[in-house]
Structure formats: C-alpha cells, structure tokens
C-alpha cells in the first residue's frame, strides 16, 4: 500500500490545524470590537469555530497518522506474501517437502528410497550473510535427509546403520 494518499490528507489537515489556531487568536490579533457584556458575536463565532476546527483537525491527524503508520508497516508483510505468491522457479528443483512424507511412508518397505538431492540456493539469497548461511543450511538438510533414510532402512533390517 502506498502512503501518497495519507501525505495529501495530512497536508490538508495541517492547514486546518493552522487555520484553527489562527481563528482562536484572530479576535485579539485583529482587535475585534468587544462588548461591555463580554465577547461580541464576531469573537464568539471565530473562537468557537476555531476550537471546533482544531479538534476536528487533530482527530483527523490522529486517524490519518495511525492509518499511515499501518500502511508503512504493511510493505514487509506484502513483500513476504508476494514472495510466496510468485514462484521463482526453484521450487521444481527442491522437492524436499514432498520427500519427507515419502521417507515416512516407506518405513515398512525393505529398501528405503535414495536420499533426495540437497536443495539449491534460493535465487533471493544475494547478501553476504545469506551466501554464508545457504551452504550450511543445504548441508544440514542433506545430512538430515540421509539420516532419516538410514534410520527408516535400519529399522526394517534389524538396527543396522546409524
């Protein structure tokens, strides 16, 4: 979600805040005529209208600011959703999730299927830390698959292999 709509709304609301403050002080800055009984109709009109404008403007600022803050946090979630929704093409070469049920389902068969080839590095791993972590994760995954294959095969053949 973009935040342009909130920037325009916040700018308009900021103008309203300034107008409200000005309306509150204008009767004294512009020396409106006072009455002996108190404030005149001009002062009353500007003061109470300014108060209402200020309250509305602050309320709008709070509402727009809250929504804009949520919109600024949204790109992280939407980017993750887009990464899940848009396949990169590596899913075909990394059938590891499908291999796990196959290993468990083959526990009662004499010969366990061969270990699955380790998953290649994802295309999104471009940073230095990712470049370091991806081979480690790949080796760990390969080792885990081999151990599970050996355990399922060893359980059927009388405990051989570990």
């Amino acid at each position: 979600m973009r935040v342009g709509r909130y920037v325009s709304a916040l700018a308009a609301t900021s103008v309203a805040v300034a107008a409200g403050i000005w309306l509150l002080v204008a009767p004294w800055v512009l020396s409106y005529p006072q009455q002996a009984s108190g404030w005149g109709p001009q002062v009353l009109t500007d003061f109470w209208t300014g108060m209402a404008v200020l309250v509305l403007a602050f309320l709008a600022l709070a509402l727009y600011g809250g929504t804009a803050a949520r919109a600024l946090r949204a790109p992280v979630a939407s980017a993750a959703t887009a990464a899940v929704a848009e396949p990169t093409g590596d899913e075909d070469a990394a059938p590891v999730p499908e291999a796990m049920p196959a290993q468990n389902g083959a526990a009662h068969e004499p010969a366990a299927p061969p270990p699955v080839a380790p998953a290649p590095a994802p295309a999104t791993a471009s940073g230095t830390l990712d470049d370091m972590l991806v081979p480690i994760a790949t080796a760990l995954l390969s080792d885990l698959v081999k151990r599970r294959a050996a355990a399922s095969g060893g359980g059927n053949t009388g405990g051989e292999g570990s």
Binding site: A9, L56, A57, L59, A60, L63, T67
Partner: peptide
C-alpha cells in the same frame, strides 16, 4: 479521517 476532512 475522510469524514473529519469533510467536516472541516
């Protein structure tokens, strides 16, 4: 916020 802007 839109309602508040309309009231302004």
């Amino acid at each position: 916020g839109t309602v508040c802007t309309g009231l302004l």
